[in-house]
């Protein structure tokens, strides 16, 4: 807790101009991330988690998007920064691992060269130093026979290996913040476990902060220290991962947890499904976006928008007018 703040996100709102009207994908999101800390951002389709991670990176199309608020990364403002300034940040301060390792690698360039490029352009290394470092990075991310794989093309590698290469590229500039957007979605369970362990290990070894964006509560449960739960572009609950899992106050958080099947459940366990459909961002209700699907919703929820309020002194916040009572024993 005494670590300095690395990332300070304040009231970030990302709005897309669409022919049918403005679409607010991220709505007044604020949070802090300390150095060496791991944060999970969880949400379903349309929760804005992916847009949020791209906004933090400063990756938006040039037109049709407006971003307000502030993203301070190590004292540098990302919102409204020039391409030049952002290029200074990318790679060295912040790097990103995308979901699909196939499309985030250039299919016609050898994987080693793709790492080289980052090293030479960003860090100004010479050819031979870059090559040596690239092989070192490939070894670090657990690619066997790294020196040989240096000259492999992405298509000759399996999905898990490709994701390792993507991570190696992200680590090339020794960033202080690593943003991983669904890094294991689409990978097999055993490969997923390998990649998550790798991310854990490099975070500890390099002293980075990580943001893990995912729809899978299983991915963040034991891999992050703090959690942000998003729904319809807004943060609905945030706190330490343990608190959010065990002492959640927002009904959506509970619904999300209870609708996830668990390996430890006996067979034919009936899941508590959330009724209704995920929200339509173009037609959000005036009040709480979850109200139409919420069992606890009252008249007030439909008209007034709840703001985040503290649950206790540990930084656990929730946005709900009818918070769930704290369950004394045996959390879900």
């Amino acid at each position: 807790m005494s670590e300095p703040t690395l990332l300070r996100v304040r009231e970030v709102t990302t709005t897309f101009d669409t022919p049918t009207g403005p679409l607010t994908a991220v709505d007044a999101v604020s949070f802090d991330l300390a150095a060496h800390e791991s944060l999970g951002v969880v949400g379903e389709s349309g929760s804005g988690k992916t847009v949020l991670s791209r906004t933090i990176m400063g990756l938006q199309p040039r037109r049709g998007v407006s971003v307000t608020g502030s993203v301070l990364l190590n004292g540098t403002e990302v919102v409204g920064a020039s391409e030049q300034a952002k290029r200074e940040l990318w790679g060295r301060q912040v790097a990103m691992v995308f979901q699909d390792p196939m499309t985030s690698l250039n299919p016609v360039v050898k994987v080693g060269k793709q790492i080289d490029e980052v090293l030479r352009v960003r860090l100004g290394m010479d050819r031979s130093a870059a090559r040596a470092r690239a092989i070192e990075l490939l070894e670090m991310v657990g690619i066997p026979a790294a020196a040989t794989r240096y000259s492999a093309y992405p298509h000759s590698l399996s999905g898990g290996m490709r994701q390792r290469v993507v991570i190696a590229i992200a680590l090339a500039g020794s960033p202080q913040l690593l943003l991983a957007d669904e890094p294991t979605t689409g990978l097999d369970v055993t490969i997923q476990a390998q990649i998550l362990n790798l991310l854990d290990e490099v975070q500890g070894r390099l002293g980075m902060s990580t943001i893990l964006v995912t729809h899978d509560l299983g991915v963040v449960a034991t891999r992050t220290r703090r959690l942000v739960v998003m729904y319809a572009g807004r943060v609905v609950e945030t706190g330490t991962t343990r608190d959010v899992f065990a002492r959640h106050r927002m009904p959506y958080t509970r619904a999300l947890l209870e609708s996830s099947p668990k390996v430890s459940n006996p067979s034919h366990t009936r899941l508590a499904a959330i009724p209704g459909r995920p929200p339509n961002l173009l037609d959000l209700p005036a009040g709480c976006a979850f109200a139409p699907r919420c069992a606890y919703a009252t008249e007030r929820c439909h008209h007034e928008r709840p703001v985040l309020e503290p649950a206790d002194e540990t930084g656990h916040l929730f946005a709900c007018f009818n918070p769930l009572p704290l369950r004394a024993a045996s959390p879900s």
Binding site: A193, D216, G218, V219, R242, F245, S260, V263, S264
Partner: peptide
């Protein structure tokens, strides 16, 4: 063993 459980205490 590789399956992830949505439980921080797991």
């Amino acid at each position: 063993g590789a399956a992830l459980e949505a439980d921080p205490e797991a």
